[in-house]
Design a protein around this nucleic acid. Sequence first.
DNA 1: CCGGTGTGGTAG
DNA 2: ATCGCTACCACACCGG
Length: 994
Amino acid sequence: MDYEELAQLLSDASSLDASPQEPPPPPPPDSPLRLYDSSRGAIARERSQRPFSQQQRLLSTLDDDSLVGLVNTFDRPTQRARLRRPAAPADDAADAEDDPCIVTSSPEPPSSVVPSTPPASSRLSESDSSSDRSRSSSPTAARVGPLKFGDYAQYFSDKTAHQHSRDEYMRKLYQDALNGGREYPPIFKDCTIYINGRTFPDRLQLHQKIIIHGGSFKHFLSGKKSVTHIVASNLTAKKRIEFQNYKVVAPAWITESIAASKRLPWQDYALITGEYGQQKLQIARPPAAALPAPEQQPADGFDANSLDCKQPGFLQSFFAKSRLHQLSAWKADLRALFCEKYVEGAHLQPPPKGARLAIFHVDFDCFFATVSALSDARYDLSRDPLAVAHGNNSSEIASCNYVARSFGVKNGMWVRSARRLCPNLICLPYNFEQYEVNSKLLYQILAGSGFFQMILPISIDEAICVKYLDGLPDGDASAHQQCEAITRQIRRDVFDATNGCTVSIGCSNSLVLARLALKKAKPNGQCVMASLEQDSIDAFIEELPLRDLPGVGATIVDKVQQHILFEQTAEPTIGDLKRNSSLQLLASKLGTKTGHKLHLFLSGKDDEENSRVLRDPLDYFARKSISVDINYAIRFDTIHEIDEFIDRICEHLTTKLGELDMVTPQVTLKVTRRCEHAPIEPAKYLGSGECDTFSRSSRFGVPTCEAGLISTEVKSSFRMLGCPPKDLRGIAVQLNKLEKVSDRVCQLRLPFREQDASSAGSRFPALNVNAFNSLPGALKEDVRTELLKRKINLPPSPPSKRSASNSPVKDYWGRHGKRTETLKQEMPSTLDEDFMNHLPTQIQREIKWDHAIVKKASSSVRNRLSRKGTGVLNLSKNRPSKPEAVKFQSLERPLGISRLIKSWIDDTIDNGPHIDDLNLFDKYLTKLAAKGKTHHILKIARTMSSHLEYHSSFTKSNPQGRQEWEEYLLIRMIPTLTASAAKSDSGVQVTFDL
DNA sequence: CCGGTGTGGTAG
DNA sequence: ATCGCTACCACACCGG
């Protein structure tokens, strides 16, 4: 961007403003609102490393009183009336609850009815943490105040806004702009509508119609429950199947309902004809007329044969066939079911404190292989070597029977290698449905037997059953016999019920021993060792491989061999380690907890963590995180495709989150990247090959369940990790530290009164805020830093006269047009916590950096820009740099401007327009409006609309950038147009088909 | 010492 | 072809 040019434009435009206060400031090198530009963070970090200034060193030598006194000498009334934010009008207070943007530090005194920032000193005295200190001031706080007409910059930046409140906001806006503030009939109240594909009227128009008539609008199709109607003009056969459970209607339903002023029956406009609910017929025989051209099908992402991570249906089709995903999903379901039942008290009783327990570890033998074999009469489990796998070469063996194992075949082995060991190996397909059926039978038998007080789910094929041995004396022979009998019966029942699936059971009085007994019992056996003497326990476990201990995997065995046993045997036994180690040795070589745990295990005792499942099963099984990991078939070319993928993952996650009724305060992105030396395509088809992993987490101060917000954070994290799109081999998104929504009722804020009261007794001398504001720029910043270091807070500024302005547009310019200046001059000392909390983490980080550093702006804009690429993460390589600057000269030539706008949109359709450019463009629009060139604005709006529509016809276009454009069009262009038309009275029909 | 982050390990 | 998931703990390290 040519900044001199821009500065010129800015000053031109600011002359339109009735009350300019300042000479035009230097343009912002980069707006803090720019979500996608992580380079800013790098710059800020760099700056923050500069040494403190001389001035600041001096300041730090003063005591509190002297410092404040020094500042107060600067009170010059003439400088008092600075840019001030308007007070929030009372009618905006109602929105505050839904819109995090509004609940922020108000400049009004605490006595106001409008929520205001509690003085930070009280907060700090409660919590003396460093993070509080560093976040206690921010340039962004300048963006507070009611959302007004032209306030879209804030609107864009605030990806945290709930969809609902957005809709509310836009509805109000339309009402004011188009209907004289009157309400439209709420025809689509309680409707949540998604628009699929190209429609006529187009997306934007339908969106507006839906919103103003009380409906809400979904940009994504997430969960089945999230949308009530889908609007589409035509559907492909695949979509037809995908949407079969939805109410899919033609756009005419919207337009004609509006014309009729009532919601017409959707059935009359249904695109999928036939009975609602008779989907099976639809699958079998979709109407011939609707069949799409064959080449359209793959683009839909539901091509059964290909697995393409770029297609929307990828996640689902991958999960459907992924054994590991199913395993995890089943496990989660079982745990959830357990918690449900436990709360109800069904089948389960809380374990008595010191009770002696008999623990039965029940496990199907090579579950998948057995079940798959039983459903194919050709094969004999006991004679044929069998395995379950998808393919023939680099496909992994999910499970193999004991015949195959006798050849050395192991689970997880590639089929090709297994065939080398066992040429006759037979590969069976998965049969997930039958696995579920048999699992259910197992659990039913266990629960129905009445032998156990508690049944703890381990997985689809494995459970731990607990029996309380109350009356029986220690070492009672009858207890042992009883357990043997129980075990026998369970095994027989399961075998019968499943028509041939065998389970093995290990039984003992600790979890570890039960597990070890199970290992000994396998296959198709049982091992009961209740109430044994320590000696016989030792003798029993002596022989078993160390690997069999819970929590001991390949790495720990390696470490043991290397550091404790010094490579004595290939497969060390429990006895080997027990003879050659001590608690101290174990702890020092393997870590405190691990060492301690192992030490206990070596004597057959459970450790604290392990036995938690017995002591507090509800807590043990409670869900604390949720995540999606994809490390297969990830092949992307552009960051933009990855963004879309991330969007889908986040949609998936938030759908689940919603089902769980939970929210998350933190999201972690894990990126798996091809190793430098690894081949582009690994041996395994669509595999990830050798990879490195990187992860980055970010926090939402206020826990959230919104896909858009989470997604934005993840995309930002992805950019920080700097993985070239083509090298990406896996991606995982985790939502951590989940909280149940119902558990966090309304801990939003403490009552203000209390905080006000506590701040009254501040130990600091009063600081004159006007004096502070009068300080010369650089000194002011140094002082601010010093004040913050000492936790002296500036009092809130009084509301300014400017708030009386009745022009929202002017307010907008006042606050946003001079962003750089605003940041420097008006940065309040206390950052409203709620406000901070609602900002994406990256922005928070940037604010903190910005805040922590002393800004002298010594380097020029150009300088700073040229240093952009020097960030540690080498961001510029991986992300398209800021789009080419948009110039709005040749303003009066319609053809030129239309071409310019088209190319501007083309350039920014991925990541959205840059705020600087939008500001600039806004100036231009304002000028046009001032000159009464309404037709001009109209033409531009039409150009934008049609060009966005054109973009939306590509599946490749990124919803994020397009959405931002659409939003801009809707909340900025249209109102400007309306206002301009009203003012000029030009007779131009501002229908704009909207 | 505390609490946070990123990484690693393990289990089914 | 092929479907290399995911929850959770523990640890190392870092900065206040």
